[in-house]
Design a protein around this nucleic acid. Structure first.
Lengths: 186, 186
DNA sequence: ATTAGTAATTAACAAATGTTAATGCGGAGA
DNA sequence: TCTCCGCATTAACATTTGTTAATTACTAAT
């Protein structure tokens, strides 16, 4: 009843359920700055990153709020948009030339119909994603941009190495100008 | 497969499932400032407010981040803590003298075992709660404290009328001093 | 190699909030 | 009624960020 197992990452998911997908899983390659999901649309695909990186963000008229970066072996989705068929609050875009596996909504739902274990994994996935979001937002509220930047440098080398500064600034909730100041303070 | 029905509020939930609970639902009355759930504990109760109000917040050493107020007929829980049996990120406390119905974890899980419809309602509940949180956090990030205060005055009369200012300030993400300035600006 | 366009840095100023502290207000209880 | 204590307001100052603009650095394409 209560989920104890760890959430599946993209690689583990594919290993576990890939064999059930004889023809529902597509591989595609997209260049940098390709939009995979537009904010306001209903999402109909779940992605797994084979190589490259993605950015997930919310647009608010004049400014972007970047909320997540994704890299190799991660599972990427606006799942609640897929599941509830509601407008996505987010856009998803490639940062680099990226190779993806794409699992379409119909195949995902068919798969869920045929596997109680998958339903279980998915419910876990949502709860974990929910908790992750709460951690992200809480850190965004309670830690200063400078603290969060230091944390990024210490714990997220891929973000520092592969993501342009102005996206990092957007992720930290500040302008590129302010991030530059923070980096060069002292 | 895909959930289309609207999320249940506490009253609708009790009406729909209350008859299945011959002895698992308890009524209790607590005075103001009573803690119902301590941050870090695993939650084992889901509440319905009959009368009164509650506050949900996260503590970060020196400061509180208030995230939600609850009033009559609302269903209140740190559901992911109940379901995944993980430490709650939040505390929940009464603001006023409050009368509650309490549904314990064991009874909730038993109920879920016996009702596929309830499982469905609960999954919807989580997805909707997730989306609500995202809206709350996004507004907290993209709107200024002054805008959010005006929004509160326009749309949340119960909060303005029944919640002390310093909790409202905490909800808006600012100090009580700053909220006082905003109120008296111009 | 040159050029053009984008990204990053730096500077100067305005605006908002945090912090600290002093004051005012108001209800609960002796 | 008086006192106490927590809450709200106001003031003064420091800190931070946003904004605008100018400059520099970098990258990609011709």
């Amino acid at each position: 009843m209560v989920a104890e197992q760890k959430i599946l990452d993209g690689a583990a998911f594919l290993k576990k359920y890939g064999s059930m997908l004889t023809d529902g899983l597509y591989m595609e390659q997209v260049p940098a700055l390709t939009t995979l999901l537009y904010q306001g649309d209903i999402s109909h695909s779940l992605y797994f990153i084979k190589q490259g990186s993605l950015r997930l963000w919310h647009n608010n008229g004049d400014k972007d709020i970047t909320m997540q970066f994704f890299f190799e072996n991660q599972m990427v989705s606006a799942f609640e948009s897929i599941y509830l068929a509601t407008a996505s609050l987010y856009s998803i875009e490639s940062l680099e030339n990226t190779i993806l596996y794409r699992l379409d909504r119909d195949n995902l739902l068919k798969l869920m119909d045929n596997s109680e274990e998958l339903q279980h994994d998915i419910l876990n996935f949502i709860c974990e994603r929910f908790i992750n979001y709460q951690h992200y937002f809480l850190s965004r509220i309670k830690d200063s941009p400078a603290e969060r930047y230091r944390d990024l440098v210490a714990n997220e080398p891929r973000i520092i190495a592969r993501v342009p500064q102005h996206y990092i600034a957007s992720y930290l909730g500040i302008t590129a100008v302010s991030l530059s100041r923070i980096k060069n303070r002292h």
